[in-house]
Amino acid sequence: MTPFLAWQTPHLTGRVAASVAILGLLGTGLAYVLYFRLIGDVGATTASAVNYVVPVAAVLVGVVVLGEPVTWNLLAGGLVVLAGVAYAEGRLRWPRARAAQAPGR
């Protein structure tokens, strides 16, 4: 894409190439290994729920590292996401209606 834009061609040094390789191996590669291990341990449905928690973790990092303000929208959205994941995994149970009592009791 660079030849078609007004940008200069990037100069790739050994340090830059090594950094990209390390990020690919450690960041992406390790994440895939852990994710597929998680699928093997808990199943695909539960492992896929991890993807819904990523925005919650990103907001938490933004608050802690970048000092972003915590608003009611963030808290409400985080609770909705966590409640949805818990419900989808069967960890959040609604109280069951009592069984109908037999007549005459």
Rank of each mutant, 00 (worst) to 15 (best):
T2G: 02
T2Q: 06
P3V: 09
P3Y: 08
P3S: 05
P3W: 07
P3I: 08
F4A: 12
F4G: 11
A6M: 09
W7C: 04
Q8T: 09
T9W: 09
P10H: 02
T13C: 06
R15I: 01
R15P: 01
R15M: 04
R15K: 03
V16N: 07
A17F: 15
A17H: 03
S19T: 12
V20T: 06
V20L: 13
V20P: 04
V20A: 12
I22P: 11
I22F: 14
L23C: 14
L25M: 13
G27R: 01
G27I: 06
G29E: 05
G29R: 02
L30H: 11
L30C: 07
L30V: 14
A31C: 13
A31P: 03
Y32T: 10
V33Q: 05
L34Y: 03
F36G: 02
F36W: 14
R37P: 01
R37C: 10
R37A: 11
L38Y: 06
I39A: 09
G40K: 12
D41Q: 15
D41W: 14
V42A: 01
G43A: 14
A44W: 14
A44C: 03
T45C: 07
T46M: 08
T46L: 14
S48N: 14
S48T: 10
S48Y: 12
A49H: 11
A49L: 09
V50P: 01
V53N: 03
V54E: 00
P55Y: 03
P55G: 02
P55Q: 00
V56M: 00
V56Q: 00
A57P: 03
A57K: 13
A58M: 13
A58W: 11
A58F: 04
L60P: 01
L60Y: 12
V61C: 04
G62P: 09
V63D: 01
V63R: 00
V64F: 06
V65E: 13
V65S: 11
G67H: 01
G67L: 02
G67D: 13
E68F: 05
E68G: 04
E68L: 15
E68T: 13
P69M: 03
P69C: 07
V70C: 10
W72Q: 10
L74S: 05
L74G: 00
A76M: 05
G77K: 00
G77D: 05
L79M: 11
V80M: 12
V81P: 00
A83P: 05
A83Q: 00
G84F: 03
V85N: 05
A86L: 08
E89K: 01
G90T: 10
R91I: 04
R91A: 15
R91C: 07
R93T: 10
P95K: 08
R96W: 01
A97L: 12
A97Q: 06
R98H: 07
R98P: 05
R98Q: 14
A99S: 13
A99V: 11
A100T: 08
Q101R: 15
Q101K: 13
A102S: 15
A102M: 07
P103N: 06
P103S: 07
G104K: 00
R105K: 09
